[in-house]
Design a protein around this nucleic acid. Structure first.
Lengths: 198, 198
DNA sequence: GTCTATATTAGGATAGAC
DNA sequence: GTCTATCCTAATATAGAC
């Protein structure tokens, strides 16, 4: 039973697991407000009243910490195969959209690092390319399933629609992050209703 | 005749203007590949075989240089009032989209800094909030104009459509930056055709 | 306008004690 | 696992000569 990627190769003690979770949470906050390059390990340690050394003990390098943060972020996301099986993808997407309002820091972090990582030499480039491919693939699959059940116009190209949903999601989210006082849910709902019409 | 914002209060010599243009260009490249925080003034100076001191002579602080870069970037963009007056906004938008393929570094820079600047305490926060408000406003206006000429369904909400176009544009551009081998123009064209149908 | 040299601060990372 | 102390590098910025 290997846990991979996590920097602890052997047994996990309760305290360690909790500390790592705390560190990931604090790192998310710091990276989200200043970006990956702009956020420092010292800031993260200070947020926890922890020494820098102790932090580094858990995550030996900064990039390892970032990867842990990103993976944790995606472990909470749920656009997985089977997404929206019950009430259709449209309802499931809107529900997921609304749940995202609870974690603005996380959204900001993903937006910043995704843009940073679009440069081919960024340490997280491959991770984000794969992440988007996976998201588009999962969405296409769900759209096809809804089409086979007559919920969506069969003439709609699933892959293209999946790209557009992902894109519009990202773009509206950016606008919302810039100005949270404007609720863009109805815009997104109208967009989905038009794109995924029967 | 005051030139505002530009750090030279008095007369502009040809050499100075050219140097500043060169610096802005190099800064665009560097910020685009490593972000605002991640890109250093040293990198920018090195790119021009210029000393750090000379660079700072032209732009005394890093943030002033960023603002100059952003303003230069937007001086090239053209979603201004009157945009697409002749052949309608849909054609003009697609044309602008295609022209953007020529400046991937600029697009990456804007994507990174826009996300970074979504945090309220970022030095460029206000600038980006205003930039998006302006873009949405200009787009709404153009949509209304096209509606009055019967080119777009009058039931379409101009402001909502403007937000969606901006959002989808940003999102598709991010996907393209991550993986430039996939051409997303047809996706964008289909989206526009559906949203701005008569 | 450009340079060399330097001040100052902050970054990631390590050594070694407890 | 956590700490203090430290190393080394690189960051922005300034001083002063040419």
């Amino acid at each position: 039973m290997s846990t991979s990627t996590v920097p602890r190769p052997r047994r996990q003690y309760a305290k360690t697991a909790q500390r790592q979770a705390e560190i990931i949470e604090a790192a998310t906050t710091v990276f989200a407000s200043r970006g990956y390059h702009g956020g420092s390990l010292r800031d993260i340690a200070r947020e926890l009243d922890l020494s820098l050394t102790s932090l580094v003990h858990h995550f030996p390098t900064k990039i390892e910490l970032l990867v842990a943060v990103l993976q944790h972020a995606d472990s909470q996301a749920t656009w997985l195969p089977g997404f929206g099986d019950e009430h259709g993808i449209q309802a499931a997407t809107l529900k997921l959209w609304e749940s995202n309002y609870e974690h603005p820091e996380l959204l900001r972090l993903l937006a910043i690092v995704a843009a940073e990582a679009s440069a081919p030499d960024h340490p997280a480039h491959a991770w984000f390319v794969h992440r988007y491919e996976q998201a588009v693939e999962a969405y296409s699959e769900s759209i096809r399933r809804d089409q086979s059940r007559g919920r969506i116009n069969p003439a709609t190209d699933p892959t293209s629609a999946a790209r557009l949903i992902t894109a519009t999601w990202d773009g509206l989210q950016l606008q919302w992050l810039l100005n949270p006082s404007k609720d863009l849910t109805s815009d997104f709902r109208n967009f989905l209703g038009q794109l995924l019409a029967p």
